[in-house]
Design a protein around this nucleic acid. Structure first.
Lengths: 342, 342
DNA sequence: TCCACTCGTGAGAGCGCTCTCACAACGTCG
DNA sequence: CGACGTTGTGAGAGCGCTCTCACGAGTGGA
């Protein structure tokens, strides 16, 4: 379907115009050094004049590459569309991939039918690699694809692999444990002694690690968890959890919330209960989504480098397409962003 | 790159296993009725046994279709990654496209280089259609692609086409004008008489239409705009604009804000100025993003059917791939969602 | 009985590309 | 001066598919 009325410039026509063979024209366009300057000039000029565009289908057929990678959100509840976190990872992946002239195929696997469809698609070699974001539990799909020979990278350590263990499939993660420790320490250093937490869904490693970090740091400070509530990384979940925390421990003076969306909900709950932030209760979020700075009061949070994670994932994937070697896990540092809430 | 060690089941091998010719196997897999039941069964069984997956590259080469459509955000400032609106449109597009076994190629055109790259890509016939979201000014790219024979659909009426004019390129939009009128009426009916507005960027038709709707309804009610501030659909922009509004008209008692993100910022500004919402100032947003219900106070807003727009765009595009006929503009209704802020 | 069909099928072309191989034209060296 | 690279080039195969064409077998009307 090459534009207006089958005018389709092909490599053949470029070669003809340049007065060389198709093979030579192909060599020039592929950037081979084994071409005379004369031929190279002629081919490049002809290609420009015809505004020739390589037919990727034909190329794929020969190279058995698709020059595209998939960005997959394996999130049954479509959380993707509510949490800016995903957009930001996507941005990073997109940036890296665009720089390599590779296309990004986007997929959300909400139900089993879609999972199956995608698995077939990927196993059929229609993408050169797959980036998975937001895995729950011990999802077998990434491993399956990897075993089928498709390069795979994960955002976030898969559940079932310990933090210091070699992983069966490559991943890029943020230092969730360290970030949560830093958040907890920040509250303690501000003199808070009754520190609670709102965790994320514990079928995700990120939530588990942040929870562990919180407990670990409290223990190091000779404190005990004042109250713990579990939620699902959503605003309403955070609000509900904050209410539960206040019910369980009325004297609460600090909270580590496992992501910003929940922290927004927590802020709302604290407001409803008449607690001032940070005067009565100090709050630290996690992620540093764009909205965090616009909250009332602006949220102190643990920044995780979402776009960079995306970039790292895409870069690793692109390399794996070439050499097919597995990548060691990459854990990027987090950083406290101090605003008003703590 | 078909999975493990070049094992690649091809149509040929399926045909051989089924004891028919490649042509017949192809017919079965294409769903042609001109095949005997016997042959059909044999082919389907063989395909299942080999877990055959059609090679899309080879198919594309013949059909001159790519079985993929592009989702393009032409947003220089990458607003995409901050505004949930886009995610929700993307969700709709994804849903429609997935149901047709078509892939979604995702692209963000942040700079001229990317624009050019994408234009070449699309003009080269590497996607069967292009959905543009969030166009600014009178962007020539959609028209260019359409003239080059690529089916194109827009989310949002392009600037330069009046609401009742036939459009040069198909689009799906929400009833921005009607929605803004309804929002304004809601405030007036609640007894508000000094009603201001925060507009979006006026290089986008959605912002212009909402602004017009506001003025139009005020005029119909024999009121005049109390104060007008322009912003950019972002939270910080909305906050700044709200402050400007209060500076210009201290007695303001109602505000129509052109999207929810800005309304969130406006809420913040009102809070900073000690105005209670809705008691002192009533506020209506636009979009009904997931966060709207979680704001403090929960936002009354004009819901636009974001996912449905996405779905409509994708469906139209998929039809256009077949018959190549242009689609008339489609304008979907909006609806007031009453919460607390007004 | 013959011609005109419809129906299911197979043979084969060819989509546009990459890649291997052969080959001519040129050094370079023993 | 013949044997041996090296370099630029073209011819041709073939990736896996779709689609056109031809053909035999069955069906029905004149």
């Amino acid at each position: 379907m090459t534009a207006r009325h089958g005018e389709a410039p092909t490599l053949e026509s470029v070669a003809a115009r340049a007065g060389v063979s198709r093979a030579t024209a192909g060599r020039v366009l592929a950037g081979s050094p084994r071409v005379s300057d004369h031929a190279r000039d002629a081919v490049l000029r002809a290609a420009a004049e015809l505004s020739y565009v390589t037919n990727r289908a034909a190329r794929s057929l020969m190279t058995r590459r698709s020059d595209s990678i998939a960005f997959v959100v394996a999130e049954p509840e479509e959380r993707f569309f509510a949490d800016p976190f995903f957009s930001l990872v996507l941005r990073g992946v997109h940036a890296a991939v665009a720089a390599h002239d590779v296309q990004l195929v986007f997929a959300v696997l909400t139900d089993d039918a879609e999972r199956e469809r995608f698995a077939r698609f990927a196993r059929g070699g229609h993408v050169d690699g797959v980036a998975f974001v937001s895995l729950h539990g011990a999802d077998p799909l990434p491993r399956e694809l990897q075993d089928a020979g498709v390069p795979v990278m994960l955002q976030g350590r898969p559940l079932g692999t310990a933090r210091d263990e070699p992983a069966p499939v490559g991943y890029v993660d943020a230092d969730n444990h360290g970030g949560a420790r830093a958040a907890t320490r920040l509250l303690a250093e501000a003199g808070r002694t009754r520190i609670g937490t709102v965790t994320g869904p514990l079928d995700m490693a990120a939530a588990v690690d942040r929870f562990d970090g919180y407990r670990c740091e409290l223990a190091a400070l000779d404190l005990t968890p004042a109250a713990v509530a579990h939620a699902d990384f959503s605003v309403v979940g955070g609000r509900r959890a904050m209410h539960a925390l206040l019910d369980a421990e009325p004297l609460l003076d600090g909270v580590v919330v496992a992501n910003d969306l929940m922290a927004l909900g927590a802020l709302q709950a604290l407001n409803e209960r008449g607690r001032r932030v940070p005067d009565d209760v100090a709050l630290v979020g996690f992620d540093d989504i764009p909205l965090a700075g616009a909250a009332a009061p602006p949220l102190t949070t643990v920044r995780q480098p979402m776009a960079e994670m995306g970039r790292a994932i895409a870069t690793a994937l692109l390399e794996m397409v070439g050499d097919r070697s597995p990548r060691p896990p990459l854990v990027l540092p987090t950083e406290i962003v101090r605003r008003v809430s703590a």
